[in-house]
Simulated assay, not measured.
Amino acid sequence: MGRKKKKQKREVDELLLDAIFSIEREWKQVKSIVGRSIEPSFDGSSTEKLAQSKYLFLLREAKHRKISAIRYSK
């Protein structure tokens, strides 16, 4: 793999990790709100499921790309 391709892969991997952390925070916030609700609305539950699905999809992509957050810690 050329030097330029390695740099591009690293940049994409870092963007993917940033997205994972962002979606994880979103999912946990929505989950917390829904969990504290007396009667969670359908919108709240579906928003939580959507955020969870995004998070799990991104985790699978990271696993497929064989990337680790430890390697890219800043």
Rank of each mutant, 00 (worst) to 15 (best):
D18W: 05
S45I: 12
R60G: 14
R10N: 10
L16C: 06
S37Q: 08
F21L: 09
R65H: 08
H64N: 10
I38Q: 08
K54E: 10
S68F: 09
E24L: 04
R60A: 14
A62L: 05
I20R: 02
K28S: 06
E24A: 06
L56P: 03
L56F: 15
L50F: 12
Y72L: 13
K31H: 05
Q8A: 13
F57P: 00
E61D: 07
A51N: 13
K74W: 04
L15K: 11
V34C: 01
E26A: 02
R25E: 14
K49G: 04
S53C: 13
I23C: 03
K49Y: 11
F42H: 10
G2Q: 07
R60I: 07
L56E: 15
I38M: 07
R36P: 00
S41L: 07
A69H: 08
R25K: 15
A19W: 01
F21T: 03
M1K: 07
H64L: 09
I70T: 13
D18L: 05
G44M: 08
L50G: 04
L56K: 15
S46M: 14
K6H: 07
F42T: 11
K7W: 09
R10V: 09
E26Q: 12
G2V: 07
P40R: 00
E39H: 10
K28P: 01
G44N: 05
H64C: 01
P40K: 01
K4F: 06
K28H: 09
E39C: 05
S46V: 12
